[in-house]
Nucleic acid binder design. Structure first.
Lengths: 225, 225
DNA sequence: ATGATAACCGAACGCCTGTTCTGTGTCAAG
DNA sequence: CTTGACACAGAACAGGCGTTCGGTTATCAT
């Protein structure tokens, strides 16, 4: 009978640790670490063991190696590189549907359904890794100055400060919307980004579920209707 | 009298060649080249000469080096890296002012006034290097679903196809605007991106200067008013 | 038990690589 | 002409670094 390996689940803790170290080292130094540097930072005393793990990671497709070349390794595809931030594209957002939130353990999201953003473009210090992106479907967000096909990048949040642009689910109205959030004495005010449009006033009794804060909006203008 | 150096202009042909090689090597291998590899590909027979140039490039701020570390070099700032596209931020765009176009030879734009965009986000194959970015000032572009503070990325163009979103200067009205462009029998129709707003109809007699096509719009939502 | 196998360690080998030192030819200033 | 900065070449040194090999331990199926 065929049996599974010792620690089964394909990627042991040490594999993950090496992968993480390569990524952070590369981000900081702009070049890959040496085998010995990996060993030091991952508590592996022998270079041969590091090499041993590196071989496995190569066979499993997590890294590529240039044999005989010092620091000749690179992370493949699904790992953020350089000054890039890779956020998963969790789905679409539209007025009539709730907001899809990515599962907290999104280990594996392929290049196809993810968005790359230059870190230098990121506002404040939202460089956290729990951001996610949604593609806007339909023209229901035009009062937020967001059009069909636009991509919004969100940070998960259950509450907001005044002035934050939030993605909310209004269960009473069965509606998803993107608005600037203001708490007022008798309830909430949801202000459209488009200054020519009127705000939505909510009483305290109406349910308002904040799903996330909008961090960035990206519009590609390649299509033409 | 103080005299200039042999080849004057700060960056000799060989410096440029080395810089280019490092960039292309890094892009291909995801790790920097060794001194000897630079020598081979730049027709420099001695490693000391490569080192000699590398020192100069470091002093002039074009690269950084990690001494004693193999392949410990990286391009600094103003050079595109990895899958990043760096477009110069040419200035601001607003209704009452003409559109600033960057000088064709924009050799030196610092990190401060440039925008980085992931290549994977770029529509079609606009990966050309003549793109430029403008920051929107004021709320005059709201009919294009573009707000104060947004960043628009443009490709220089003097003409457009129907359906392209273009930045135009209407000299008769002394106005800059962003609209979808349609040529019609009796003139032009400039259609706002916001579907709730009416188009501008132009007669053939009215001057219309196309300055560029809009490729992308980026909105950072860190501010809150 | 026992043998197989995965997961290690330590050391040694040898090329890879950055550094340094000596030397050469050129060109312009004094 | 001399001097000196500059742009190179070549060789040698020393440490960096990937690779390999022999050996050890623990786990697990037979």
């Amino acid at each position: 009978m065929m049996m599974m390996v010792r620690k089964s689940k394909g990627l042991g803790e040490r594999h993950q640790r090496i992968l993480d170290f390569i990524a952070s080292y590369q981000r900081e130094h702009k070049h890959p670490p040496s085998i010995r540097e990996i060993g030091e930072h991952c508590d592996i005393s022998s270079t041969s063991v590091v090499n041993y793990y590196l071989d496995q990671l190569e066979k499993s497709g997590h890294i590529e190696r240039d044999r005989k070349i010092s620091r000749g390794m690179r992370l493949t595809g699904n790992t953020p590189l350089g000054d890039m931030l890779r956020v998963p594209l969790a789905g679409v957002i539209q007025a009539g549907e709730p907001i899809p939130i990515p599962s907290t353990d999104f280990n594996t999201f392929t290049a196809e359904d993810s968005i790359e953003v230059a870190m230098s473009l990121m506002p404040s210090r939202e460089k956290g890794k729990d951001l996610f992106a949604l593609k806007v479907q339909g023209e229901s967000m035009i009062d937020a100055m967001i059009n069909d096909g636009d991509i919004v990048i969100l940070k998960p949040a259950q509450e907001a400060r005044n002035g934050d642009m939030v993605a909310v689910w209004l269960s009473d109205r069965n509606e998803t919307t993107l608005k600037y959030y203001f708490k007022e004495k008798d309830g909430y005010r949801l202000q459209p980004a488009n200054p020519t449009m009127k705000p939505i006033m909510l009483k305290k009794t109406e349910a308002l579920e904040i799903k996330g804060k909008v961090v960035m909006v990206i519009r590609k203008v390649d299509r033409y209707n």
